[in-house]
Nucleic acid binder design. Structure first.
Lengths: 261, 261
DNA sequence: GTTCCGCATGAATCGATAG
DNA sequence: ACTATCGATTCATGCGGAA
């Protein structure tokens, strides 16, 4: 691949040592070492104003959270990546289970890395409906606030409130509150379509190129296709590749578009 | 303080370089070095089956998340602490603001450290009401609901929905969804009472000793008092100490108990 | 006695300007 | 060339006073 050719990278690599029977299963202690050559190639092909989103969560090893994700962040910075932000994916329906020393794990990291401090971000593409507070708060402004609006002299007290009139969406924050995919995909990672879709809308525009170097069942490419982006996926396992191709080609644009927009 | 005398430590130390005009203001680059001597004392006084909860979040420095929290976790492990878990505090109302390169920050870390893999955890004390799904889901049980239905993905998970009949509370997960305190405390940290209260209920029992080495306006001690634990707080600034004493002594047990239980 | 309205304010961050 | 200060931006909550 040519250098500086990709607008956005969104990926969820195989987590260390997990899914051992379905994927390669990288040992936690070797995870950073295993990932760095990949990151170097990603850095080469990403445009200077592009973004790299890494969805990952550290395993529990021997009763303790392993530190390979922390070490990976530090290592990537050593190699020139900028650690711009850490988004949290807060899962509505996390895996069940009960243990004496911990609760169910309901969140994952979505790490944002950049090559440059200036990067493309299209914030208006991910505005969310205003919270419920607005309904009760802005419902009955009519009498007093209309008067305030008409008299533009002086106080400015009413101005703040009237600023909110007519708006129905606000900017989100850095926590994504999404359900996990309960679908029937033949791939063990529960990676909901909305997760890559959110980052694709936020960090790319139509016609841009989105890359997923660990394609898996093709969720990132599906989201990119639905959103009108070009997409490129890499997958080592023949069987996942076949699943991804099937998922992507069977996509019916008319069916899926309303789901995301 | 004698060694092995504290059952639980819950604290929210001054964040690096923030609150510069109210607190000392520790530089991000010196944060780990500044914290380690404190951590050593905490390790000394904590009981072997006790827990240390550290509420912290890294600042943005020069357009990038600083790494001092990651380095602090690694350093604490070097000094013998076990990094058992990372809870997330998902804030309902985060600080406002708009920037071209990031959204509002709506979460903080609550890091759990232990001296030993075996520690006290009273999970039943923090059960939460069952979600609304239960009402509709349990009304008409299907055939698969009455027996164990194994996951189709081969994960080994299964479910037996009929197990849920008659229950009205469930265990929570590792994400706490709380509002920040917008109250009138004369202390700049917005640390809601529910946050220390949750960990106090989870990791201590009545009569246990709870320590907060950075007491601030005394929220941890307030929660401990309400929940019938002994408490011990350390505060360097005379003015915060006075505020904390006032907050704690003015506590009316009858008023506050229903708020938390 | 209850609901509704007005308003202050919070672990923030960026970019421009001043020193 | 570097650091310090300041203005601008914006969402949700709770409290006090009014209806």
């Amino acid at each position: 691949m040519p250098q500086d050719s990709v607008d956005l990278i969104v990926t969820s690599p195989p987590y260390a040592d997990s899914r051992k029977n379905t994927y390669g299963g990288i040992s936690p202690d070797e995870y950073v070492e295993w990932f760095l050559p990949v990151a170097a190639e990603l850095q080469r092909v990403l445009k200077p104003d592009g973004t790299f989103i890494l969805n990952i969560k550290e395993r529990v090893v021997d009763g303790e959270r392993h530190t390979y994700v922390l070490e990976l962040i530090l290592a990537l910075r050593q190699h020139g990546w900028i650690w711009t932000e850490e988004y949290i994916w807060h899962k509505k329906n996390s895996s069940p289970g009960k243990w004496p020393n911990r609760f169910r794990d309901a969140w994952e990291r979505c790490l944002q890395f950049n090559k440059d401090k200036k990067f493309n971000m299209y914030q208006d593409n991910v505005r969310v409906p205003m919270g419920d507070w607005a309904k009760s708060r802005l419902k009955n402004l009519s009498e007093t606030d209309k008067r305030r609006d008409n008299s533009k002299v002086g106080s400015g007290f009413g101005k703040k409130v009237s600023n909110w009139l007519g708006r129905d969406t606000v900017y989100p924050d850095n926590v994504l509150y999404l359900a996990t995919e309960t679908g029937n995909k033949n791939h063990s990672a529960a990676f909901p379509l909305e997760l890559p879709a959110w980052f694709i809308k936020l960090f790319s525009k139509e016609g841009d190129l989105v890359l997923d170097p660990f394609l898996g069942s093709g969720t990132t490419a599906e989201a990119a296709k639905i959103l009108g982006r070009k997409y490129l996926g890499i997958e080592q396992k023949e069987e996942y590749y076949q699943v991804a191709v099937a998922n992507i080609t069977s996509l019916n644009q008319e069916d899926t578009q309303p789901r995301l927009l």
